[in-house]
Write a protein that binds this DNA or RNA. Structure first.
Lengths: 229, 229
DNA sequence: GGGTCCTCCCGTACGCTGTATCGCTTCTCC
DNA sequence: GGAGAAGCGATACAGCGTACGGGAGGACCC
């Protein structure tokens, strides 16, 4: 039955079925393995089924559509972003630890970027991650709106960085793009870019913590200002 | 000829052909129109060709693969992020203006998010945008590495925010996801989330400028510290 | 003016995708 | 032991990107 509850998130729907050889867990695990080995594009229903010695349509006993599988995959590996408790007591250190952990999870499963950039992560593990992010700020005694603002800003920066890092690592677009870039810049049409990139695109340093520290400093300054005007 | 220069960015390759009815510009314009009206998923080679009264394979005279078309589309609409000169003289105001403009362009063409999150924007218009971002910081007299750090941080935050904003607006995943969210949180498994979301997910305020201001404040503080230690 | 070549355009075809539909088999429960 | 449910899958369909090869027609040279 292709039921009418397509609007209900996967996790809220029971697998429905007397499982034997297949299972939702096995399907997700197989899909994650394929993605890890060959990228997200290699994850097709037929391919995952083959990996389990089954046929394509058998998977549809456990998921309703491929999007469900992608949701489950994302939630599966976002679990790796969980930080061992207890969190550092300082909110900035705690927030930074969580952000680092999120980045590490994505580095371990690069395809996660393509999923995160398409959907909100609100599966069980995604919620645990969110819970931890809120916990990191709990010592500040802020109200709900203020907490959400900080959470959003830190999360936005983190995901933006992760995205750029991921795209920059794409082997298809580096050498040739750099060459084109240098050539265009050399035309003189970009006066400010020219002195910066005359010798090509420099090796990027790892600026993740620098930017995050700037942001946290700015947030901290805002908090001080509120407390002691 | 499916030439061997697939590694060269589209913009560097001449269209090659005695154009008559079709042209690269017309193809890109048609593709943008389809994406604006029906989303990026509706942009298929066959569909764009039909829009121009042509057959699918005709487009391949002007592009080598669909990815090229997507690159061209992204660069086409990122032009809207260009800010009318002169830029505000204050670097923070200038940076903020550019970031606002980037956000506005994406709001005007939501599908741009799906492209930006997949590739670096380095077409002619993307470079103009980058040029402006560098120009905004030129008054600070920083060296290349310091400029790039600030550029990266601001860009990461901006794109992270835009991404979240885009995903949150997805009509498919709001009501049902919220319901599931509330139910899970109600189980008591998430002690820090519970007091925050007991009554459901609150209406989000627009925090774009708040977060960006935090980041810029943090950057400014870092600059002061360097100047007068 | 006639031949040659280059380029636009596209008909056809291939391998791939997600998934609707329906039927078979096997297990569970009364 | 009969009935119903549930796992599994064969088949099929519409759609995708694009490789290949051919026809049409303008541009150029002799």
């Amino acid at each position: 039955m292709t039921s009418e509850n397509g609007a209900v998130p996967v996790w809220a729907r029971p697998p429905a079925g007397r499982r034997t050889t297949l299972s939702r867990e096995a399907i997700v695990a197989a899909a994650v393995a394929v993605a890890d080995a060959e990228g997200l594009a290699a994850v097709s229903i037929r391919r995952v089924a083959a990996e389990l010695g089954a046929r394509a349509m058998s998977l549809y006993t456990y998921i309703e559509r491929k999007e469900d599988l992608l949701d489950l995959m994302a939630d599966e590996v976002i679990a790796e972003a969980h930080v061992a408790e207890p969190l550092p007591s300082d909110w900035r250190e705690a927030t930074m630890t969580i952000a680092r952990s999120e980045r590490a999870a994505v580095r371990h499963h690069p395809w996660l970027v393509e999923l995160i950039s398409r959907r909100e992560a609100v599966g069980p593990n995604g919620l645990r991650h969110l819970e931890q992010s809120v916990a990191a700020l709990s010592g500040l005694g802020l109200d709900r709106a203020a907490t959400l603002r900080i959470l959003a800003a830190v999360g936005d920066y983190t995901r933006g960085f992760i995205l750029r890092e991921h795209n920059a690592a794409d082997p298809r677009r580096t050498a040739a793009v750099d060459r084109y870039f240098k050539e265009r810049v050399g035309t003189g049409a970009y006066p400010h870019l020219e002195p910066m990139f005359r010798d090509g695109v420099p090796e990027q340093e790892d600026t993740f913590e620098i930017g995050l520290t700037w942001l946290l400093n700015g947030i901290a300054a805002g908090l001080d200002r509120e407390e002691s005007p």
